[in-house]
Nucleic acid binder design. Sequence first.
DNA 1: TATGAATGAGCGTTCATTCAT
DNA 2: TATGAATGAACGCTCATTCAT
Lengths: 205, 205, 205, 205
Amino acid sequence: MPKQTKKPQVTAPAPERRAEILATAAEVFAAHGYNATTVRRIADEAGMLAGSLYYHFDSKESMVDEILSAFLGELWTGYDAVLAAGLGPRETIEALVTESFREIDRHRAAVAIYQKEWRQLATQPRFQYLSDSQTRFEKAWLGTLERGVAAGVFRDGLDVRLTYRFVRDTVWVAASWYRPGGLHSPEEIARQYLSMVLDGIAVRT
Amino acid sequence: MPKQTKKPQVTAPAPERRAEILATAAEVFAAHGYNATTVRRIADEAGMLAGSLYYHFDSKESMVDEILSAFLGELWTGYDAVLAAGLGPRETIEALVTESFREIDRHRAAVAIYQKEWRQLATQPRFQYLSDSQTRFEKAWLGTLERGVAAGVFRDGLDVRLTYRFVRDTVWVAASWYRPGGLHSPEEIARQYLSMVLDGIAVRT
Amino acid sequence: MPKQTKKPQVTAPAPERRAEILATAAEVFAAHGYNATTVRRIADEAGMLAGSLYYHFDSKESMVDEILSAFLGELWTGYDAVLAAGLGPRETIEALVTESFREIDRHRAAVAIYQKEWRQLATQPRFQYLSDSQTRFEKAWLGTLERGVAAGVFRDGLDVRLTYRFVRDTVWVAASWYRPGGLHSPEEIARQYLSMVLDGIAVRT
Amino acid sequence: MPKQTKKPQVTAPAPERRAEILATAAEVFAAHGYNATTVRRIADEAGMLAGSLYYHFDSKESMVDEILSAFLGELWTGYDAVLAAGLGPRETIEALVTESFREIDRHRAAVAIYQKEWRQLATQPRFQYLSDSQTRFEKAWLGTLERGVAAGVFRDGLDVRLTYRFVRDTVWVAASWYRPGGLHSPEEIARQYLSMVLDGIAVRT
DNA sequence: TATGAATGAGCGTTCATTCAT
DNA sequence: TATGAATGAACGCTCATTCAT
């Protein structure tokens, strides 16, 4: 049996280490909360001493910053593509929800952190972009819902603001229980979720 | 001579001050998170010094404990009444959701704390009851949903576990934006929410 | 033999503790430098733990701040009295120098800190007043020297700027070796110093 | 075959790089203080990484050590020549002061470091030579002053110890404001300074 | 009941130094 | 010669908690 093709490198290549640490940090932040997570804990899980983290990062804060902005960057790439596609209101909602669950699948930890911490973090100028993103998010959803009501594809008299809040929260809160590689693919979860929101769980009488 | 079981004349516990402090603490916990809230901050808002809180409470932990268990106590009083009423599945769901929004109305801060902190807190034995409550909660909802599917009032093939999670999270997360005395009464919010979950937002074709 | 009149107080009265700690801190700062002095060291010498200092003071920085501004406050009270007295140039110089050595006598530690640290500290906005003081100081001395040259009591052609620097530094640097209660009173030191600066050490030929 | 005593082709110590780094370090130490200067800062200004300094030097401490001992070496070469020249007291003082200002001109940074840090550093055995130098310095000046008083060229009753301290401090403290290549040559500054110390600034009446 | 003062553990961060490459 | 990555001790500071008064 041939030896594994593990390269004879003694130490891991440089820029990957950052990403490793960041992934570790994201997991710990997601599991225990940003404030409750100590840099010593992150360092432990990354197999180094607390001080060594500061060779790679400026501060604990800049770690969450990097985690969250990377996630939001990818999220908006996906969202913008959907919003630019010229779909109908129902199809836009379907695409946004599906895209959201895909992001949860790919950035579970980041989404969980985002969901739990954005309100506290956004008070600092450095995290202004969290509020900005929230605003854009609201505009995209609210606009689509209103368009749908106007077009007669969503119920007349729908409280779009209330609906937006329900939909937004339910989607993101899924990051708190979703486990990648579990029974349901992101697309399957999106399908079920959309079926509930669009058509309800009650049998039509 | 038997030892007195109570000496209410020497150290009157002044139950009103306790309640005041507890209400203050709940607001601060809800606004800034449990970990990020210092006892000094609570004391400040209560008009006393940090050390003085310890005359009334054992610890910061016992403050959240009291806040959360008081809330859960009332919640289960309401839920148990609903579950014991022998309603049909759809009516049970409607009653549970309405009861939940009423609790959010009355215990907004406690619900927000519960929603944000229960996972961390539940790791400690003292907060075992949070997990227990979660389990009972799950049983009540899951049972009702299954009963509804069996009775043909909810869609056949509904993933009840997934539905439960969606419903649960959306209801409680409302505590993060709900403001008592705002435009919507709890009953109105419940109605809108139930309309969405039961019948969907799409126009039936 | 009667017992000492030590009052039966168990703990020291409140506001004096601040002053005690401040005096201790000043000594340690003067002896080892501001940067090299740890708050633990100050706390040790004050008979408490490092964290306890923060009950009395905001930060290590605010300790030096208080030390230096108290010193400069008193210094300028003395200087302003001299400058307002309408003395001749020579008498003004004599009074300023005497006043300076008196301040060194009363605030030896503060003067030593000032002398050693002002340049670094003054880069921070909080210590702007150190630069301001330096400027006023320069104005007072330079003005007096120029007045003296114009009045013919100081040598014609004297480089007043150079003279100012020499005089300023020599006076303050004395704080690094002066020990209150030593052989020389502040007034005696001032007298000797003035004799050197005004009339020189050489025998007139 | 005898082992080579030197292999200049393999690890040439490149003495110029050392000197460059040392000059850089001296500037930074002088500008910001020894303690407040990080090796990273020195490395930055020298165009390398912090760790790389340790190829050239054992430690931060050995950098100041080299800076200060080089300066003192040259200083004493000059002083010893003056002291061995058999000059009269006044001429000796003049020559020592002039020599001192020349050293400030050539080793401004080193003198500034010396002036600011010698007391702290001298507590370590490694820097014993700083105290030794101080002692020799004191002896040379004190002896000359006493000789001058005995010879009747300096005032009778002069407190030589006090005078020594004033003179010493004023000379060295000039390093904190002196800028080589400025308006005044070292010799000019020495002349002005000597005029002040020897004959005073007051007009003789 | 509440205060004033302190404790002590732990936190995020800095920094001189090491060392394999 | 120099780099990149890490170490480990220490630092300034925070905070829940204690306790004599």
